[in-house]
C-alpha cells in the first residue's frame, strides 16, 4: 500500500493534491475527506485553531494506523495531510485520500483512519479567539 503522511504549516492545496492522484486502472474508488476549521466553538465565534503535535509519536502512530488499514482492507494508497500551527476558520486542516478497488473498503478505511487519529495520534488544537490578533486562547476544549 502506498502511503504518504504530511504534517505541514503550509495551507493545504486540495486542488493540487487531487491533481497529483496516482493513475491506474485497479482502484475503482477514490474517497477524499477535507476537514475544515469551523468558525465557532461551543457557540462562540473564533478566529481559528492552532495545532501542535508530538511529531515523532504522531508519525509513528499514523504508521501503526496505516499498518492496520493495510492488514484489514485491500487499499492501494492513503495520502494524509494535516496542518500544524495556526489555521484560520474556513481553512482546511485535514485532507485524506484513500484509493481502493471498491467503495466499501475506501469509505471504511477513511472513516477508521480519521476516527482512530482522533483517539491516538498526539495532535492538539487550541482556540484562537477573535479580536486579540489571532493569538491562542487559553481553552484547549475545542470541539471534536
Amino acid at each position: 500500500m502506498h502511503r504518504e503522511l504530511i504534517l505541514t504549516e503550509e495551507p493545504i492545496d486540495e486542488r493540487a493534491w487531487v491533481a497529483s492522484r496516482a493513475g491506474g486502472v485497479t482502484h475503482g474508488a477514490v474517497v477524499t475527506f477535507s476537514g475544515v476549521v469551523r468558525g465557532s466553538e461551543h457557540g462562540q465565534p473564533i478566529a481559528g485553531l492552532e495545532y501542535t503535535a508530538f511529531e515523532a509519536m504522531a508519525r509513528h502512530q499514523f504508521g501503526l494506523l496505516l499498518d492496520r488499514v493495510a492488514a484489514r482492507w485491500p487499499v492501494e494508497s492513503v495520502r494524509l495531510v494535516h496542518r500544524m500551527g495556526p489555521v484560520s476558520a474556513g481553512d482546511v486542516s485535514l485532507w485524506v485520500e484513500v484509493l481502493a478497488p471498491h467503495r466499501a473498503e475506501a469509505f471504511a478505511a477513511c472513516q477508521m483512519l480519521i476516527d482512530e487519529m482522533k483517539r491516538v495520534v498526539p495532535i492538539w488544537k487550541r482556540v484562537m479567539e477573535r479580536g486579540n490578533g489571532g493569538s491562542a486562547g487559553r481553552s484547549n476544549q475545542s470541539e471534536p
Binding site: 503535535a53 504522531a58 494535516h82 480519521i114 482522533k118 498526539p122 495532535i123 492538539w124 471534536p144
Partner: peptide, 10 residues
C-alpha cells in the same frame, strides 16, 4: 516518558 492530555487531531 511523555505526559499529555487527550488528543484532538483533525
Amino acid at each position: 516518558v511523555s505526559l499529555f492530555p487527550p488528543v484532538q487531531g483533525g
